[in-house]
Amino acid sequence: MSDALAVVALTLVGVAGTAVAWTFDPARQAVLSSVFGVLLAVLFTVLQAPDVALSQIGVGAALVPLMVVLTVRRIRRGPR
């Protein structure tokens, strides 16, 4: 792996993470966090951690954003 690849992956993760944390609309944030999850998985692959990358795809890019979307949907609908 080259130096440049690691720097690019790390930078993307840093930028995407910042964007997730500072996007104050939860619905958009859920989509962004899914993208962030994929980018993290890419970084983990670059760092030679395929096991972690696989989990991250499942949990960070699918499971958690799905739960967030469902929560947002429930909250938008309101109690009645």
């Binding site: 993470g17 997730v20 944390a21 609309d25 859920a30 967030v68 909250i75």
Partner: peptide, 11 residues
Amino acid sequence: NLVHAVVALSV
């Protein structure tokens, strides 16, 4: 928004 705060915590 607490949903936002929870996701920020995961960051």
